[in-house]
Amino acid sequence: MTTVPDEGLAGTGAGGRRRPRARFTVVLGILWLVVPLVLFLLDHSVLLAGNPAQVIALAASGLIGVVLLVRDRSAPNPRPRKARPVLRALGRVAGVLVTVVVLGALVWLRPFGATPEAVAAMSGSADVRVMDAPAHIVIAPTSGTPTRGLIFQPGARVDPRAYVPMLSEVSRQGVIVFVVKQPFGIGFLATTAPHAFIDRHPEVTSWTIAGHSLGGVVAAGFAHDHPGVVRGLVLWASYPVDSLADRTDLTVASVSGTSDGFTTPADIAASRPLLPGDTAYTAVAGAVHSYFGDYGDQPGDGTPTVSRAEAQPQIVAATVALLDGL
């Protein structure tokens, strides 16, 4: 009697066991599907409030997982062929490397979410209105037409909303503020963002660019590459990479914390030769890196010896002083 092979065992070996290749594809598919899904569920409120690039990347990664799983389920049982162990091994190594790099990057890029108080500040107030857009946040006085503008680059992986409380205080002094929503929360992916604000607001006659931490590096880079475009530069717990020492057309303020665990006092001192000689330095005694935004504590930061409520008005005052001096 002739036995007809069971089609339901496609993709299995003897005894109904799944082929190693099929098991490998399933594991990869599950990882590509589950990791982005978990990340989105954990951080969905922050991700949806930021630049859409990260949500799109998570969705694309999840789609890859679905494709891998569907492809495994629908793949017919292949005809016997000569084994190619070297090619199969190389393919698996490449698949593992890509999976580790991409999914590992998505895990590392998890943002530091704004505090509830910072999120509440997005509603604005009687004298400051806050407007939310996919690629930026606008903070503007409710009265008058500001002629001074501040473009702010957030720190790496920090929720842009975390800076709204302090920058609202700056805006109350008659300044329109633009907070950049950087793709994946990385300033180097938004180096050209200031152009859009400058081009769309001809009523602003005096522009200042500012940034926190990595965002300050990007802000300083923009000032370096575009002489005459911005008149002021404010560095919050940051310093430039390229020298601005000979820039007589640029007014600079450096605001730092003496207990900062990332941008240390030694870093600020070492960067002095890169800044103009008349740079205004403000060292907030006892302040740490995370005090320059409202996103809670940051692992690896220093130990503060002053409260956030005491430190932040000093940061705001130093920023307003530069703007008033332009």
Score class of each variant (00 low, 15 high):
198 I>M: 12
198 I>F: 06
212 H>D: 07
202 P>W: 11
195 H>L: 07
204 V>L: 04
208 T>R: 03
171 S>F: 04
172 R>M: 12
183 P>N: 06
177 V>E: 01
201 H>E: 09
177 V>N: 03
192 T>D: 15
175 V>A: 09
189 L>A: 12
198 I>P: 00
167 L>S: 01
209 I>D: 07
202 P>H: 06
192 T>Q: 14
205 T>I: 01
170 V>I: 08
196 A>D: 15
181 K>Y: 13
186 I>S: 09
187 G>S: 14
197 F>M: 14
177 V>R: 01
180 V>W: 02
196 A>Y: 09
177 V>D: 05
186 I>Q: 12
210 A>D: 02
201 H>A: 02
210 A>Q: 02
213 S>W: 11
201 H>S: 05
179 V>S: 01
185 G>R: 10
203 E>S: 11
176 I>D: 00
170 V>C: 05
169 E>K: 13
199 D>F: 02
167 L>C: 05
176 I>R: 08
192 T>R: 14
193 A>T: 04
203 E>T: 08
204 V>S: 01
188 F>W: 13
200 R>Q: 12
177 V>H: 02
213 S>K: 09
211 G>V: 07
191 T>N: 12
167 L>D: 09
192 T>H: 13
171 S>L: 03
189 L>V: 03
203 E>P: 01
210 A>W: 07
170 V>K: 06
170 V>D: 01
200 R>L: 04
199 D>G: 03
184 F>S: 06
185 G>I: 10
207 W>H: 00
174 G>W: 10
169 E>I: 04
204 V>C: 00
212 H>P: 13
